[in-house]
Amino acid sequence: MSGNMNLTLKIWRQKNGNVQGELVTYPVKNISPDMSFLEMFDVLNEQLISEGKEPIAFDHDCREGICGMCSMFINGRAHGPKEGVTTCQLHMRSFKDGDTIVVEPWRATAFPVVKDLVVDRSAFDRVIAAGGFISANTGNSQDANALPISKFNADTAFDAAACIGCGACVATCKNASAMLFVSAKVSQLALLPQGQPERYRRVQSMVAQMDSEGFGNCTNTGACEAECPKGISISNIARMNRDYFAAKICKEEEVN
């Protein structure tokens, strides 16, 4: 078909977390511009399998931009050159015939490589488990609208809740800091009445867990916000800082 592309891919191959990895060059031919980046990887993997080689391991799930599973650091940027998209929503029309594309896994000590492009993001799960929830007693469900919420707060909380936990913020941050993720998870509950009882305990526990996972420290470069596929704002980081300092200065409840 006309318009199809031939590309050179340089892909990080690493058998497991205990051995060194390296960039391996793979040529791919006849790639349709309408394919998604992951579909191009499917083509390459079919090609590798038919050649009797080990296919490339990469994370993916919903392929519609909402699950946060696909990762890939493409040509020096998390989820590739487009803004506001995950790798599954990146299409090959964003590249030109003859391009060389470098694909690496998320690089962070807290996200160890499992295999090839797959990294272990369970550090995020442990941060959530440390406090990113509300404790709701069971029983009959409440009357609707028993808790009034302003439209503005509902919208702002929803914007924070759009975080899909993909880890692009950590991957792109020069310090591999997780503060955008953690602040989004803190904010989505801090802005709503249901989140209030545990608000100050939550922020302290989640920050403590984040620190113990070995993420870096934020230097406010704003790279996370620019690369976030869901456009999470760094104003969430300021909110997390406010809540954290307020908790440390004003609250008596002991946390950790």
Binding site: W12, F73, N75, G76, V102, R107, T109, A110, N175, A176
Partner: peptide, 8 residues
């Protein structure tokens, strides 16, 4: 926090 650097 980033022991292995990016190639790109």
């Amino acid at each position: 926090a980033r022991s292995v650097q990016y190639a790109a």
